Every structure is written in C-alpha cells, then in structure tokens.
Amino acid sequence: MPVDSDTFRTVLGQWPSGVCVVTTTGPRGAHGMTASSFSSVSLDPPLVSVCLGNHLPSRGLLDAAGRFALSFLGKDQAHIGRRFAGQHPEITDRFAGLDWQLTEGGIPVLADAIAWLDCRVAHAYPGGDHTIFVGEVTDAAMPRVTAPLLFHSRTWGQVADPLPSSLHLAVEVPPGDPLAAVLRQAGSRVRHDGSHAEFTVDGTGVLPPPAWFSAARETGSAVVGYVADAFDPAREAAVLSVLDALTALGCDEVGLTESPVKPASPLQVRRVLQDAIVRVRPAVLRVRLAGGHSLALVNALVAMKSGVAHFDTVAPGAAAGLPMDDLLHLSRQLEVPGPRFSFEE
C-alpha cells in the first residue's frame, strides 16, 4: 500500500539539500523557479537532472526551450530562494532588482550565485506527477566562494560544521621557557622556533615580495600568512580578498587574527570563518583569538563549530592572547581531543 503524500513529504523533508534557481526562456522572456530536486547524473558526459512538477509553467517552458540553467544559492541568498518559490506574491517580476547574466545558450543565471550550470535538455522522463529532465552541461562557472544555502524540513538553513575531531595548538612561550620542551613532547608547536616562516598582512594589504617566499621554502620552513584584524566587519571583503591572494601564493597555513583592542562579535567570527574555511583549502586555516574579554571562549567555541582545528595560543600567565589552558579546558568540556601535558594531571 503506497504511503500517503503528507507522510512522504514529511519524511523527504528530513533529507537536507542545496537550493538552486532553475531558469529557462519562453515567449514572454525569462522564467524561473526554486528547486531542491537537483542531482548530478554523470561525469562523462557531464549530465545533471532536475525534477519539475507537471502542473508548473516552468515544466512546459523548459520542455519547449530545450535548454535550462541552474544557479546554486549561497547562505546569504535565502531571500532569492523564497522569491522564486513564490513566497513573496507581491513581487510580480521575480527577476527585477537582481544581477543576471546570459549564458552562451541564452539562459539567465545569477551573476553572484556560488555556481551555475548551463544545460541542453538531453532526456525527459515521466516521473509520476513530475517530469525528470536530464541536462547535458555545456558551460559552468563559480562566480564566488561562500557556504551554500540549505533546505531542510521546510526551513532555509546554513551548513553547521561539526566540532573538529581533534585540536592542534601553536603556543607562544618566552625564550628559554622549559614549557617549550613539554609542548613539543605533547605534539604542539612552539611559535617562532624556526619551523614556520610567518608574516602578517595588515590593513594596507601589502604582501611580502616573491624573494621572501623563495627564501622561506629553501630553508624547508612551512609558510604561514596571517591577516591582521580579520574579524572587523568593515574589512570583511578586504580580508576575504587577502585570503584568496594568500592561497594563490601557496601558503601552507593561513591565519586569521582577532584585534587585541576591539573584541570580535561571535556572529562576525562565524560569518568570516564560514567563507574562509572554504577559500583557503587545501591550506590549513588557523585562528589567533584575543584573550582577556568575556567573549574569548565564546569566539573559540564558534571557531571550533565553524570547523577550525588549529589555534594560536599563549602560555599561561601571558599578557595578551588566548591562554592555552583556557582553550584546552574548553576542548575537554566539548570532548574534543587536544594535546595533554603532564602538568595538567
């Protein structure tokens, strides 16, 4: 006996998916709708599928046009998803006020989508009350890098990264401090010990010359590029641009530094890290948070929930920076394995 439609829809709602806007053209111009029933089909040839309800105008238009495009939405574009899902009936022209560009196939795609595909209809199969369109991808692009928009249980959402599987520390200790040997024995890195070549990009955005990178690599040192005051809301676009530059230079690790003067808000830490962790791959992303304010451990938790596993800390009793023992206490409470030191027992 078939399951009833309400139960079936509720069950399917437990399967999270990305969100895209399907666009095509017709006698009255461009037409689009929000869809989550998208899937990749084949790599060679490149094929994708999308399912459209037979009652929808888009279904007939797409069939007649023989072409369609898919614009994948980012975490900040739920309003576009709602618009093309018909949740704003007061908007009569869904395309108005948004930035569009035409593909070579003549189909509009969102200029600031996180990715888009231009497709030729290769097959159309009946699928109950839907039609399964299989499209051959003729063009594709990724206009910007950010976390995707998700749809789950009839609600718009964002990627919520799990806590890291383990914690890795780089600790700043005074020269000659016996703690350095303990740190190394526990598998943590001691900053400024010569194993890593570090530099910081300040508000001017000036990078070291190519000769600096060549010299660092000749010594066998891992290259770490830091971005100063990385969580200032006014500098968000500039910070992300610097991250792209550091990744292009081939930095082994990229670090984001919180201002010691103006504590960052947890929301801004989350905003920046959501984009940063995607942009810097395959480099390691590390975070250097300020200590001594009430949000220090909250920001550390937000960073861990954003997928950050590498932190710069300071030795207990240091004047500035996030204390190593505070972060380790947090990791134990969250049951995230971190380095263990004999003096902790």
Rank of each mutant, 00 (worst) to 15 (best):
A216M: 03
E136G: 06
V224N: 05
W156P: 02
A211F: 01
G187R: 04
F151A: 05
A228Q: 12
F151E: 02
A180Y: 08
P178D: 07
L169A: 05
A237F: 14
A216V: 03
G225D: 07
V173N: 04
G187Y: 04
Y226P: 00
A216I: 00
P148L: 12
W212C: 05
A186Y: 04
V159G: 03
A197K: 00
G176E: 07
H168K: 07
P164C: 01
F199K: 02
F213H: 09
D193I: 02
A180L: 09
G205F: 05
V159D: 08
P210E: 07
Q185V: 08
V182I: 10
R189Q: 14
A234D: 13
V201G: 05
P178S: 10
S165H: 15
Y226R: 08
E218S: 14
A147Y: 05
S214E: 12
P162D: 01
A228P: 09
F231E: 11
P148Q: 07
H152G: 11
V201P: 06
V190I: 11
V134Y: 03
A181W: 03
A141N: 04
T146K: 14
A147E: 12
L183D: 09
P162A: 05
S153D: 15
V224T: 08
V190R: 12
F133Y: 13
H152K: 13
D193Y: 07
W156Y: 15
L179E: 13
S188T: 13
P126Q: 11
A160M: 12
F133C: 09
V137F: 00
P233H: 06
A215F: 04
A237N: 14
E136T: 05
T138Q: 01
D202H: 15
A234M: 08
L149H: 00
S188G: 09
I132C: 12
R235Q: 13
A216F: 02
R191T: 14
P174I: 05
T155G: 10
R154K: 12
G220E: 10
A186E: 04
R189K: 11
D161R: 15
G128S: 02
H196K: 09
V134G: 00
A141V: 00
H168C: 03
G127A: 15
Q158L: 13
R144G: 04
V134L: 10
P210C: 02
V224H: 07
L179V: 14
P210K: 09
A186H: 01
T219A: 15
M142L: 04
V137K: 00
F151G: 06
A222H: 09
A197R: 03
G194R: 09
L167Y: 06
S165M: 12
L169K: 05
G194L: 08
V206R: 09
V145Q: 13
A211S: 15
A216T: 01
R217H: 06
L163Q: 11
L169Y: 05
G128I: 00
G176M: 04
